[in-house]
Design a protein around this nucleic acid. Sequence first.
RNA 1: GCUGUUGUAGCGUAGUGGUAGCGCAACGCCUUGGUAAGGCGUAGGUCGUGGGUUCAAUUCCCACCAACAGCACCA
Length: 650
Amino acid sequence: MSSPGNEIRITLPDGSVRTTTRGSTGADVAASIGAGLAKAALAVKVDGELKDLDWPIQKDAKVEIVTRKSEEALDLIRHDTAHLLAQAVQALYPGTQVTIGPNIEDGFFYDFARNEPFTPDDLPKIEAKMRELVAADLPTKRTVWERDKAVAHFRGLGEQYKAEIIQDLPANEEVRVYYHGDWHDLCRGPHLMSTAKIGLGFKLTKIAGAYWRGDAKNAQLQRIYGTAWRDEKELAAHLQRLEEAEKRDHRKIGKEMHLFHIQEEATGQVFWHPKGWALYRTVENYIRRKIERGGYNEVKTPQLIDRKLWEESGHWENYRPNMFIAEVDEGTDHARRILAVKPMNCPGHVQIFKQGLKSYRDLPLRLAEFGACHRYEPSGALHGIMRVRSFVQDDAHIFCTEEQIVDETKKFVELLTEVYRELGFESFITKLATRPELRGGTEAQWDHAETALENACKTIGLPYTINPGEGTFYAPKLEFVLRDAIGRDWQCGTIQLDYVLPERLDAEYIAEDGNRRRPVMLHRAIVGSLERFIGVLIEHHAGKFPVWLAPVQAVVATIVSDADAYAKEVTAHLKLSGLRVETDLRNEKINYKVREHSLAKVPYLLVAGRKEAEERTISIRRLGSEKQETMSLDALTNLLIAESTPPDLR
RNA sequence: GCUGUUGUAGCGUAGUGGUAGCGCAACGCCUUGGUAAGGCGUAGGUCGUGGGUUCAAUUCCCACCAACAGCACCA
């Protein structure tokens, strides 16, 4: 229903309708509503699409004026700030080529090609230039170019990357070039109407190398990251959040709480200290109970396995660069034997499966292992205990029939959800990684496998997103992702459907009809690597673990030395109940002890003074509370036992 | 692996071409104090490793190792 002639009908978000001339802009509409709105307007949404404020509206449409308060404002501001960054960089460092500058979470980046490296000292200079450009209030102007002319123009300026981008634009897409003052850049838009609209809520945060088009085979560009907000107050709040996140860093807390360390002579491997190992074992034993009850059989397979098996499994061909190789002299004829330290547990589990003929009645057969795996990870990938070269997976392989896939997947996802919940993770992300370009197996197998994973998510009501083309070459997979304190995502759990390995390693079972069949193999892990998971756990709780996980669950601290004997007795008593308790008899004041153990994040401080020793009681103070509570030794023991009981045993 | 930055006592840090300070922790002495740092004192460092320049290197240069941030890779 279009209006006649030069009139068009504009529908505003409140449902009201206005008539205006064809070709009116968002700015016109805003002005017609009020001067305040006209001033506040940043852009306009026409039928749901973000447009420049001076975009002529040609037909009846729903129109919404976007202001600083709108949700879209941040995206607009960030994108304009990216342009501002590029403009500042080219002003300060002539000859620098611009490439792309998209928005990311909390900000933006822009990739530049320049022979000289940027240094951290450059950031304040660039930032100052950006502020200058904001103050100059440079007007934005949108122009549309003919494609060949644009390519020639940018090439003439020495902007090879931009020229390449224009050439690769879809044929039906308009080539738009935006001017901010004299400076111009290829861009789809929309943009704010002037640099002043950006405001000063931005900050450049870091410099890094990044490959052109994300491919390590291409040239490496220099990326400058920034964050941008509606105003300086929002920026300050964001920086504050980052600081808070840093305090949760598992590497920092791991050191402070004496959980583990890593040193040069064993990079990418963890030295677990007594306290960290207590935490580790608590998690491991918990998982062990969960899988035992889930119908798994725990096994243990060798660390060093002959090259021959890895050749059969395909690892020698596909995974060799990541494998640690051991070579031994067999003694005679200089015969060398080559073994590989296992990077995965699957081939070992297939060997166990193959011992003795299996019947369909044996399936599903679930073999689990806390398997220590070694992988030679690139040095730049190492990160605390989250990404290491030696780690233990809560690994298991389910050998089953085609028909059992859906049920087994469902059971696994239920188990995983329960474990995450019991360990304190109410929210996690699930991704379904589907068939990649390079893949084995038939289309029917892939259809079946992907559907099975999808059905499992649906039947238990687990929300998931599709991660297209990210499956492994042999299988689609579900990925379970936990987020760390600094906003980084870590894939922990996974389940993958594998048709290839049973084939390569010749696993089979006797089916109901008496024929030999290949089992399907489900590779699955709940926490993934114990090391990584504990890292996530540390950051998730910021070191303030629930009592059952806490490395030290309580400290008995004395006020006067007269209470020493009683304090020792209390500690011994609690230890007999299986609690992790320490005694602090030091010649320090109680204030000092309270402070120290609070900072050490001990959940319970048990204070013993003369009074408690006489009355055989204890004064307790919980971490995070200033309240004191005095109770009998028996009551205390019961309380601590209750709180330290793992969630699955309650 | 790539780009950039960094590497000083257990931890956190200052500093300089003339062989190193501070805070916390540790240890000793005094203090026995009722819920977030009591006082005084002592000890601890071949300044990541190896070369080079220099009369002299922790400081300047080179190489290597490691850590950190991002990229790429991944549990």
